[in-house]
């Protein structure tokens, strides 16, 4: 329970920082997604629990600060959770490579879902423009920001899941 509570508090903090700070830092027209990166980092630690619930919470918070509804984010985050857990089971551990790979896959799914939603709701945006000026720069930013987020999450996870040492 304490893990879920801590993860939720972290998500709230990430939401605040995302809306007030991170959303002001842009490369071309891309911006980093702190909530997504926190979720990915959390999923990378084998000890962590409540992954699916956290994906739903992340989706709810993303929807809270965006004009894009939460039901666009939740399936995207659940899919990311599924893919990362599958990768963890199949690929031999290489944390950094895995982290970057997850960041790229996660960004592609999240921004892809947003793009499809906007297209379906009749917003005229071109794919080429979106790829060149929004999705790719956002991916680059996510690749940069994932490292400190991962390190921070690692410290929290260490505090939460202390291993008992036999003497």
């Amino acid at each position: 329970m304490i893990e879920l509570l801590t993860a939720t508090v972290l998500m709230i903090l990430a939401t605040i920082v995302q809306a007030s700070l991170v959303s002001q830092v842009r490369i071309l027209n891309g911006m980093s997604d702190l909530i997504l990166l926190l979720l990915i980092s959390w999923l990378h630690f084998e000890k962590t629990k409540h992954k699916w619930i956290l994906a739903i919470i992340a989706g709810l918070f993303s929807g809270l600060i965006s004009a894009i509804p939460f039901w666009v984010f939740i399936p995207a985050y659940l899919l990311i959770t599924y893919i990362i857990s599958q990768i963890h089971q199949r690929i031999w551990q290489a944390p950094l490579v895995m982290l970057f790979l997850s960041s790229i896959i996660g960004s592609a799914i999240t921004y892809g879902a947003q793009y499809v939603y906007l297209l379906v709701t009749g917003v005229p945006i071109s794919l080429a423009e979106s790829l060149n000026l929004v999705i790719n720069p956002s991916m680059v930013l996510n690749l940069i920001v994932i490292l400190p987020v991962y390190a921070f999450t690692g410290e929290i996870v260490k505090m939460l899941y202390r291993e008992e040492v036999e003497i």
Partner: peptide
């Protein structure tokens, strides 16, 4: 102004 939209596609 206290925040901006978290989606890079939108301007809110």
């Amino acid at each position: 102004v206290i925040a901006r939209d978290s989606s890079p596609f939108l301007r809110y």
